[in-house]
Nucleic acid binder design. Structure first.
Lengths: 157, 157
DNA sequence: ACTGAAAGAACTACATC
DNA sequence: GATGTAGTTCTTTCAGT
């Protein structure tokens, strides 16, 4: 489990971050290797947990989820159990794609993706605002999407 | 291009959001269909742009990128060209995984993923702070990762 | 739109170096 | 660690309903 990643491993991860449906054969060609070692390296990377999963990224616009909103949340109570309870409740909200407990003038930062502003109103009224100990909430409505990637920078490794 | 998605399409997207390396055959079994129509539907979903891409999601901890930070940025100048210039510059920062222009008391919200706080200091000093017209910057350092998914909620469609 | 069949390609294991 | 081979399974196309 303590195996360090070598150049080839990093290259494999880099390529799979861009396109994970590439065939082992093509990947091997790009690395000037035969498929077998590439196949084995991928299995190792999966098994040891470097690769979490393989997913399809959908086009939000196209499927009709046109609004992204970030929400900064401050709780009234800050005991450990309140913080954990908040995380648990938010986990069940399907509109929430990301939730981090943070330092700064918020306790949590959420990212939510939904159809439109109307759907957001409904989300706030029927879900978010029902959370007990909810303090201040500040919304940041996305006006324009800049960079948005799942690709991590491996160049520093 | 205006084809609406039916129940089967949505189910396919749902499954591919969880695991895009599933074989067409297994996917077909789960849908009680033969592989052919499933294969054709997937191709259609790709071609019409419902599916953007297939990617491997890496484990940030495991590969050594242990720190996630959100940054709220306010610019001094707000002309259209400044806003666009900011987006362009941020695009080149490999540490930045997301950047949205937003409404609220920030102009932009960024998400960055890097090794640790030291790497963050370097990022700010050598990259972020060099941006002209940069106004206030507020950092939200992730203390605990809650939900974090690329899966969009299709249940409302 | 779907089924079923069939050719070609890829996966995966294994023997070998 | 890598290569090459070979059996198995999947992909992808096409004729038919």
């Amino acid at each position: 489990m303590k195996t360090r990643l070598d150049k080839i491993d990093l290259k494999i991860l880099e390529i799979l971050q861009n396109d994970c449906r590439i065939t082992t054969k093509k990947l091997a060609e790009r690395l000037n290797l035969s498929p077998t070692p590439v196949f084995e390296r991928i299995k190792k990377l999966e098994k040891e947990g470097y690769i979490d999963k393989y997913v399809a990224l959908l086009n939000e616009r196209k499927i009709g989820l046109k609004q992204t909103i970030f929400i900064g949340v401050k709780l009234k109570g800050h005991t450990r159990s309140y913080l954990q309870k908040f995380l648990n409740q938010v986990n069940d909200f399907k509109e929430v794609t990301e939730c981090y407990q943070v330092s700064g003038n918020f306790d949590f930062l959420l990212k939510i993706v939904l159809a439109d502003i109307d759907a957001y109103e409904i989300f706030v009224q029927t879900k978010l605002s029902l959370i007990s100990e909810l303090g201040n909430v500040h919304s940041y409505i996305a006006i324009k999407k800049g960079k948005c990637t799942t690709k991590l920078d491996l160049s520093s490794l």
